[in-house]
């Protein structure tokens, strides 16, 4: 009889203990909803690095910009606990911009202990000829005609993603036509040696020498 009682008390004690443990965990979750036992690092951290790389490309890999934005990211990472791991990076720029043909390749790679994030911004163009564009019933302007290929490649935890950003023409002097798959036809006045378009992330895309 005594042994039976002891067993029952033991069972009750175990149940009460687990109940109290769960209650304390619930209270912990309520007042501090983020679990701190394990640091979640996934695609969001890597996507933030992609945006940082786009800023660097926009600055044409300006050293000051790279330093300032890297420092800012480090500070924000500490302040807001973004869980971005310690990083090293390498940048690569290959650019040949001539009148008839040209290309630019900006690559940024972020390395961290468990992998890397690679961002490539690429465009190439080829001169196709001239055409006349009527700007009024009596006046026409000679335009240069180019074909342009423009895309971004992001390699990270998600695999490899190719993005074809849209292009904007702030000067509104160019003829822009999108063919699909990153292919564009661009025409601009022949009195201009080069013309700069901007993509949706405000990265300048220069066509012509």
């Amino acid at each position: 009889m005594n042994m039976n009682r002891r067993g029952q008390f033991f069972l009750l004690a175990a149940l009460l203990l687990s109940f109290l443990l769960l209650l304390s965990l619930a209270a912990y979750r309520m007042y501090s909803p983020e679990p701190k036992v394990y640091i979640k690092r996934d695609w969001i951290q890597q996507a933030q690095l992609v945006q940082l790389a786009r800023v660097w490309v926009k600055s044409d890999f300006c050293i000051l910009c790279i330093r300032q934005t890297s420092l800012l990211l480090k500070q924000l990472n500490q302040t807001y606990r973004l869980n971005i791991p310690t990083l090293t990076n390498s940048t690569f720029r290959d650019r040949v911009l001539l009148n008839t043909t040209g290309y630019a390749n900006y690559t940024v790679v972020f390395y961290y202990s468990r992998g890397s994030v690679r961002v490539m911004v690429y465009w190439s163009y080829t001169f196709q000829g001239f055409y006349e564009k009527k700007i009024s019933p009596t006046e026409s302007v000679v335009y240069k005609n180019y074909t342009l290929t423009y895309y971004h490649v992001y390699v990270g935890g998600w695999g490899s993603v190719t993005v074809y950003p849209s292009l904007k023409d702030p000067l509104e002097k160019a003829d822009l036509r999108y063919l699909g798959g990153g292919e564009w036809i661009v025409g601009f006045p022949s009195n201009m040696t080069s013309y700069t378009l901007f993509d949706q992330f405000e990265i300048p895309v220069r066509i012509g020498g």
Binding site: I44, A47, C65, L72
Partner: peptide
């Protein structure tokens, strides 16, 4: 979730 969008 927390994430930042850094600009130029």
């Amino acid at each position: 979730f927390r994430f930042v969008w850094i600009y130029y």
